[in-house]
């Protein structure tokens, strides 16, 4: 019925989402188990290359990398203190170990490589397409439908929350660090839960009215096209190269 949606990145958008998901997963696994510095650096280089090809805007990529790197900075600051090895510096009783620093840096590079590759391959897909692609990849129905329903109703819930929140504010509510605030938020969350439950019952009722018997049908069909051949070859070659660097 409809095909891969175009959002950004003209080159990657022509590639079957299923291929992108499989490639991203395989790359993440390889990068995660890699230990040799050469493999890790090669993975990062691949990821940077992938991001460059994807045509995503630089700002978008940086925004996605930011949260990962806050965590990585913490790791680089703290991990060398806890591990042994030759000390490269000391602060009172604390020794800043070489071994720990090397490990922390490896993790940081791996983490960035994985996130970059995910952003490059999956960042331009909308969640709906990911859900459908997962379904075609034989991921259990329950999981993909959970994903699609979450996407569908997240916004409804958010608006419900915002309406409740606005109504609270209009009646002079200001959040403070006191019992009244905590109790009010408790009521707000409780009300959201109750309403979600109600809504889920109405949704099921509406689905039953349209003959739902526990089975979903997907309209979306993905086609393995000629554009996918070079992508598949490039992905296979890169992954094989990474594996070769790591194990041979």
């Amino acid at each position: 019925m409809h095909h891969v949606p175009r959002s950004s990145g003209p080159l990657l958008d022509r590639i079957d989402p299923r291929g992108r998901i499989v490639a991203a997963l395989a790359f993440s696994l390889l990068a995660a188990v890699a230990n040799r510095p050469a493999t890790v650096l090669a993975a990062l280089a691949l990821a940077v290359l992938g991001t460059a090809i994807s045509g995503l805007r630089f700002g978008t990529v940086l925004r996605r990398l930011a949260p990962v790197n806050v965590f990585m900075l913490l790791l680089i600051a703290l991990m060398p203190l806890a591990s042994g090895g030759r000390a490269i510096g000391s602060l009172g009783p604390l020794h800043y170990g070489e071994e720990g620093l090397r490990l922390a840096l490896t993790i940081a590079v791996k983490g960035n490589a994985i996130v970059l590759m995910l952003v490059a391959l999956l960042g331009s897909l909308d969640v709906t397409t990911v859900g459908h692609a997962l379904n075609h990849l034989r991921v259990p129905d329950k999981l993909t439908h959970l994903l699609l329903f979450t996407v569908r109703y997240l916004d409804v819930l958010r608006r419900e929350y915002e309406r409740l929140n606005a109504a609270m504010r209009l009646r002079g509510f200001h959040p403070r660090a006191n019992g009244h605030t905590y109790r009010t938020y408790g009521h707000l969350i409780g009300m959201l839960l109750v309403r979600s439950l109600d809504r889920s019952e109405r949704v099921v009722a509406a689905m039953k009215c349209r003959g739902f018997r526990g089975h979903f049908y997907l309209l979306d069909h993905f086609h393995f096209s000629r554009c996918d051949v070079p992508f598949a070859l490039a992905a296979l070659f890169s992954l094989a190269a990474l594996a070769w660097l790591e194990w041979l």
Binding site: H2, R152, R202, F212, Y217, L219
Partner: peptide, 22 residues
């Protein structure tokens, strides 16, 4: 409330839901 009724990601899929069930 139409939000109760429309649960599929896209309009075409939502319209297709009933006929598929039939």
């Amino acid at each position: 409330d139409s939000d109760d009724q429309l649960f599929s990601p896209t309009v075409a899929e939502d319209v297709a839901f009933g006929p598929f069930n039939l």
